[in-house]
Design a protein around this nucleic acid. Structure first.
Lengths: 188, 188
DNA sequence: GGCCTCTATTCCTGTTAGGAACAGTACACT
DNA sequence: AGTGTACTGTTCCTAACAGGAATAGAGGCC
């Protein structure tokens, strides 16, 4: 009775991955972790999807649920990754992939259609985006801070999350610079 | 009988926008145009979605179809944006939006889980991404070339598409630099 | 006690992605 | 003249994904 590799969508592996940091989470907590980490590189799945993925992963034996005893009245399940789940995730990580990042950039889309509106409005749109970008950058900076530093052995498990967070921060900075240049170009 | 503003998904407006460059397209051609332009900033909609959006837009009177006479035997429809469609699109462009770009970055996701695999494999993943990035950049560069230059009055209608394409090229370049730095960091 | 926020889960609807299926056209090769 | 293959064009089906409403207990505040 051989274990079939079971193809899953990327989001399933992403959630599985969030369960490899040493703790068991409820669906609600898993969604929070996704909002804190995943959100910056992979759209954080909807609540409904977190729960349906957990159900599916449970069905495949990749995560296991236990009823939370600390809240006996309340129906609440806490999920942990199983050895089979870890194996499946590692095998997914080892497989070659040609996946390329996919972007939905509403600001770029609107700019593409700039010939249909007043230039002043286009400028305002970009200015507003700059503000949103700064906010987002601050949010990620807070996450980055919580991940510690390479020099601190206590945070050794977060080496890769740190790299990704730094990548994200650089991205936001370069995006800021590019948008600022676009505003100048609109004016000129 | 007042025209209701009819809320549509962003993809519908994106497709509508691709019909504002002065020509009528079949669903197939519209998909091609999306692959040439939209793809770099907004995931190019699936064939099936292009057709279903065209059906819906027709229902709302925002585009109009005519049977292609040049191919009488073949069932083939050619779509053009209607005045109502143009108005709806312009009104959408004028409305404030808080939409933020959403990214699905499989490479960042895999890097986040780097603690589960061999560092050499992680490095290989990033190298491979660098190559894919270079290919994509070349594709966009070809599109950019076809959009002409600001100094040439013949290409005046493409001013905004040019800005977006240049933005994209800068993005690919900065992404390349960031990934190269990540590879160094992995090695160090 | 009333109110509000947070935790926790489920359900429903609409949007989006992806590919298979189908069919006609154009052109090159043999 | 036939054959194959690539391209144009459209439709259908399924699964993935997003978003929000509904439900409900828990804890704190005033």
């Amino acid at each position: 009775m051989r274990q079939e590799p079971v193809e899953l969508p990327t989001t399933a592996y992403a959630l599985l991955g969030l369960l490899t940091f040493g703790d068991d989470l409820t669906g609600y907590e898993l969604k929070q972790r996704a909002d804190n980490t995943l959100r910056f590189y992979w759209t954080s799945p909807a609540m409904s999807q977190v729960y349906s993925e957990l159900t599916r992963l449970t069905g495949h034996g990749l995560v296991a649920a236990r009823d939370d005893q600390s809240a006996p009245v309340r129906r609440s399940r806490r999920y942990r990754i199983t050895p089979a789940g870890r194996q499946s995730l590692e095998s997914w990580l080892r497989t070659e992939s040609n996946e390329f990042p996919s972007l939905k950039h509403p600001v770029a889309l609107r700019l593409l259609l700039g010939h249909l509106v007043d230039p002043a409005r286009m400028r305002a749109l970009l200015e507003k985006y700059l503000v949103a970008l700064a906010v987002r950058r601050l949010e990620l900076a807070a996450v980055r801070t919580s991940l510690g530093e390479d020099s601190d052995p206590a945070y050794d498990g977060y080496r890769y999350p740190r790299m990704v967070a730094d990548w994200g921060l650089d991205y936001y900075e370069s995006e800021r610079a590019m948008v600022a240049a676009l505003i100048d170009r609109l004016d000129g």
